[in-house]
Design a binder for these strands. Structure first.
Length: 483
RNA sequence: UCCUCCUUAGCUCAGUCGGUUAGAGCAUUUGACUGUUAAUCAAAGGGUCCUUGGUUCGAGCCCAAGAGGAGGAGCCA
C-alpha cells in the first residue's frame, strides 16, 4: 500500500462514521490505558485537533501498544465509528497498529505538559510538534499564502530581488559579508586593506538588507510589483521584535503617491488579517486561549483590554488613525505623561525621532488603534524619500500596531533626479555606484511609492505570541544559529 | 551595545538566619483500575544546586569573575 493512501486528521474530522476502513499516520501525543482498552491521541500536524485511536489489547499486540508512547510515529488502520466518549464525535477502532518510529520516553524532551517557550526554543527541532508551534506555523503559512493572493488579485507581479548585493546604499545598518576569501589569509592591496577584486564577485558583497532599490527598478517597468524574501541585518539587536534573518514584503508601485501608499498598506493588512481569521479559525481560537492564559501572569496594568481574536477583528473593522509627525509631536508634547515627566525621553524640540514609549502611548493609550504617522522630518529618514514642499519633511509613513510597534515603514520615493542627487550628496552616498538607481530618474521617471512589512511582526500580531523568535521556525539572533 | 532580573531532578519551581541525609508537582518506570480526554490511585528510581575562584569551622544560600537565558532600551521591519 502506498503511504499516501492515508487520510489526514483534518479530513477524517469531516467524515461520517460508517464503519469504513481508514488509515491514519501521525505522532502520538498521549496514551491512556487500562486493562481493557488503550486510547491514543494522535496528531499529524494537519490541524490543531488530535484524533482518538481506540485499541483493544486482544486485537493489538501489547508490545506494540507499549511502544506507541508520546512522540512515537505510528500508522493505524481501523474502522471509523461514532465515539462512545464525550470528547469527540468519531474515533478510530484500531485493527492494526504499526510503529513507524519509536521515541524513547526517557529521553524525548517534549512531554504532554506545558513547556516554557524558552525550553522549547532550545528544542526548536522538536517544538513544531507542540500544539502552540504547529498552530503558529499553520497561521504563518496562511498569512504568506494570502499575501501572494492579495497582490496577485490586484495585478501585482512577484519580483525576486537579489539576496547577495553590492550596494549598502540604504544605510540600513550592519550587513553580513559574503565572501569566498580565506578569512585567515585574505589577499591584500598595497595599502593593507582586503583586495575584494580577488573575491568571487570581484567586489565587496553582502546579504541584502532590503529589496527596495531593485524593487523600484521593477516597478518603473511593470507598474506594480512586490517582493517577499529573506532579509539580513547584522545588528546586535536583542529584543522580542528583531531577528538577524527575517522575511519582508516590499510592494513598490509606479503612479502611487503617499496617500495611495497608505490606502494600499491599510487595505492589505486588513485583507491578510481577515483571511487568517477566516482560514485559521481553530488555530487562532487555540492561540487566543493560550494568550489569555499568558495574560493572567502579567500585571494588571500591562494586560490587554481585548483578547487576541477581539484585537484581530478590531483591526479589520476600524479605520487606521492617520496623523502627521507634526500632529503626533503636538499630541505627545501636550500629553499627560510628558507634562508629568513620565517619559524617559521628554518631548521638546520638533524634529527628533519618536521613541518606543511615544509610539506606544499614541497607539495603546491615545488612539487605541493602529496609527499611520506620515511626513517625518527629513533629517531622520532615508535619502530616497520624496521631499515635501515645506522643505522640512519627507513623504514617509510608519504604521504602528499595538504591542508590536512599527510593522510597516514606507514612503513615496523622490522621483526628481536633481533633488535625489542633491540629497545623496548631502548624505555622502556615492552617486557613481548608484548609477543604475539614478538612471530610473533620468529615463522616464515617474511618481512612485512603496513600503516594507516585516512578515514575522505580522505573524507576531496575528498569533498573539510575545517573542518574534517563536513565530519563525529557526530564529537567527546574535549568538544563535543552532538549527 | 547598555540597564534589570534569572540559572536547584527530564520539565516547572520551592528551599527559612549560612548548619547535619536538598524538596514538591508534572514526566519516567512498575503495579492497580470495565471507555479514557494532559485519566485516576499507589510505589519506586532520578541531583556537577551553571562554571571557576574566594570568604567561613561549615556555602544551594555570602563575595568576585565568567558562561547561558529572559525582559526593557537603542537600531529597525
Amino acid at each position: 500500500m502506498a503511504f499516501n493512501k492515508r487520510t489526514k486528521i483534518r479530513e477524517v474530522l469531516n467524515l461520517t462514521p460508517e464503519n469504513q476502513i481508514i488509515i491514519l499516520m501521525g505522532w502520538v501525543r498521549t496514551r491512556r490505558s487500562n486493562k481493557n482498552v488503550t486510547f491514543i491521541s494522535l496528531n499529524d500536524g494537519s490541524c490543531i485537533q488530535n484524533y482518538q485511536i481506540v485499541a483493544d489489547p486482544t486485537v493489538i499486540d501489547e508490545d506494540i501498544l507499549r511502544k506507541a508512547n508520546t512522540g512515537a510515529s505510528i500508522k493505524v488502520s481501523g474502522r471509523l465509528v461514532a465515539s462512545q466518549g464525550s470528547g469527540q464525535q468519531t474515533e478510530l477502532n484500531a485493527e492494526s497498529v504499526e510503529i513507524l518510529g519509536e521515541a524513547d520516553p526517557e529521553s524525548y524532551p517534549i512531554q504532554p505538559k506545558k513547556h516554557s517557550l524558552e525550553f522549547l526554543r532550545e528544542n526548536a527541532h522538536l517544538r513544531i510538534r507542540t500544539s502552540t508551534f504547529s498552530a503558529v506555523m499553520r497561521v504563518r503559512h496562511h498569512l504568506a499564502y494570502s499575501i501572494h493572493e492579495y497582490f496577485h488579485q490586484k495585478g501585482f507581479f512577484y519580483i525576486h530581488t537579489p539576496i547577495i548585493t553590492a550596494s549598502d546604499a540604504e544605510g540600513a545598518g550592519e550587513m553580513f559579508r559574503v565572501s569566498v576569501l580565506d578569512p585567515k589569509n585574505p589577499p591584500l592591496k598595497e595599502d593593507g586593506s582586503v583586495d575584494f577584486k580577488q573575491d568571487f564577485f570581484e567586489r565587496e558583497t553582502n546579504l541584502t538588507v532590503s529589496g527596495q532599490l531593485e524593487g523600484e527598478l521593477a516597478a518603473l517597468a511593470l507598474s506594480e510589483i512586490y517582493t517577499f524574501g529573506p532579509t539580513f541585518r547584522a545588528e546586535n539587536s536583542n529584543t522580542t521584535r528583531h531577528l538577524a534573518e527575517f522575511w519582508m514584503i516590499e510592494p513598490e508601485m509606479a503612479f502611487y503617491d503617499a496617500e495611495d501608499n497608505q490606502d494600499l498598506a491599510e487595505d492589505f493588512l486588513k485583507y491578510v488579517i481577515s483571511s487568517a481569521l477566516r482560514h485559521c479559525k481553530e488555530d487562532l481560537m487555540f492561540l487566543d486561549q493560550r494568550a489569555a492564559e499568558e495574560e493572567k501572569t502579567k500585571k494588571a496594568e500591562l494586560r490587554n483590554e481585548l483578547s487576541l481574536l477581539e484585537r484581530l477583528t478590531f483591526v479589520t473593522e476600524n479605520k487606521f488613525e492617520r496623523i502627521t509627525y507634526t500632529e503626533a509631536w503636538e499630541i505627545l508634547k501636550n500629553s499627560a505623561p510628558n507634562k508629568k515627566k513620565k517619559f524617559a525621553f521628554p518631548i521638546e524640540e520638533w524634529g527628533t525621532d519618536l521613541q518606543s514609549e511615544h509610539e506606544r502611548y499614541l497607539v495603546e493609550k491615545h488612539f487605541k488603534k493602529p496609527v499611520i504617522i506620515s511626513d517625518y522630518p527629513k533629517a531622520i529618514k532615508s535619502f530616497y524619500m520624496k521631499q515635501n514642499e515645506d522643505g522640512k519633511t519627507v513623504a514617509a509613513m510608519d504604521i504602528l500596531f499595538p504591542g508590536i510597534g512599527e510593522i510597516v515603514g514606507g514612503s513615496q520615493r523622490e522621483e526628481n533626479l536633481e533633488k535625489l542627487a542633491q540629497r545623496m550628496e548631502e548624505l555622502n552616498i556615492s552617486r557613481e555606484e548608484m548609477w543604475w538607481y539614478l538612471d530610473t530618474r533620468r529615463f522616464g521617471t515617474a511618481p512612485h511609492a512603496g513600503f516594507g512589512l516585516g512578515f514575522e511582526r505580522l505573524v507576531l500580531f496575528v498569533t498573539g505570541m510575545g517573542n518574534i523568535r517563536d513565530v519563525i521556525p529557526f530564529p537567527r539572533t546574535p549568538g544563535n544559529a543552532e538549527f
